[in-house]
Design a protein around this nucleic acid. Structure first.
Lengths: 148, 148
DNA sequence: CGCTATATGATACTTAGTATCAATATTCTT
DNA sequence: AAGAATATTGATACTAAGTATCATATAGCG
């Protein structure tokens, strides 16, 4: 699986493309994100990176997350109660399902979703600028764990 | 238009149905919400009610908003950056469009949306517990204002 | 290599919301 | 209608998520 290293290169490239500097801190943040599998919180990441050798400051973590969201390298999503979660972004345009039990995040594209968006564009009085769509699930693994 | 008085009665009834007490503060909060047209923030509501005669405490405002969300009397939605917004709920199950320019919130039901949800339920490995869907728009009025 | 703009980090602040707990008010019971 | 039992309130203090400030450090261009 080369997904991680590819994503990492993309993330750094995206920052460069935006005319931003590649610092040791940003490298560390990108590396830490690539080590993640599901979603993660900003504070979690900050705590993690604060403890390492030549750690990264909390403010820098937040600043960099914002840059990465703007660069479409990661996504910022929300739990049902609005708690923010971040997740590495692998697919071009997509939506997410979040397991409310284990926090696993899956990305998916769905043609039907895009069709709805177009149909709604006609119904809504105004221009659609963007949207947010998240599915809250209990994933297969968690269902089995709960049943067993 | 009897929408407001009807909603207000529903809100109080919903609290009663949940076995909760009808206090002067809760009445005031419900009344203030019914005076709103678009979306509003918790802090906005708290400030508003803090200044009135026999005002309502900030903690009570937050507590009551939570109860009203649970009772489906109001909805908690999120702006693109995640900033929470509340909005009185008039339709049974619906989604929202938020004008990022003026903050107006519209509710809508769409059969297509429900169809997508069912189609996704089959694709996703796990049980769909809930979802969130918001459209960010520039409403007709704001478009005209910007153009003119 | 040196300069300059960019980035960092410590600190303090803001916003959104929750926890605590004594004082108070509602509703039930009679 | 009074009193008891229980829910609610509000002041305060706290957490979580994020932003502003600004002196110091460093990337990367020339």
């Amino acid at each position: 699986m080369t997904t991680n290293s590819t994503s990492q290169l993309d993330a750094i490239a995206a920052l460069e493309d935006a005319g931003l500097r590649i610092t040791e801190q940003r490298r560390q943040i990108v590396a830490a994100i690539n080590r993640k599998n599901g979603g993660f919180t900003a504070e979690e990441l900050a705590t993690e990176l604060a403890n390492e050798f030549e750690g990264v400051g909390r403010a820098t973590v937040y600043r960099t997350l914002k840059l990465l969201v703007e660069a479409n390298v990661i996504c910022k999503l929300a739990l049902p109660d609005g708690t923010p979660m971040y997740s590495a972004s692998r697919v071009e345009h997509h939506h997410h399902s979040v397991c409310v039990s284990c926090g696993a995040v899956e990305e998916f594209r769905d043609a039907t979703v895009e069709r709805v968006l177009r149909s709604l564009a006609r119904e809504i009085d105004g221009d659609i600028i963007g949207h947010r769509m998240e599915f809250y699930i209990r994933c297969g693994a968690c269902r089995i764990a709960a049943t067993g």
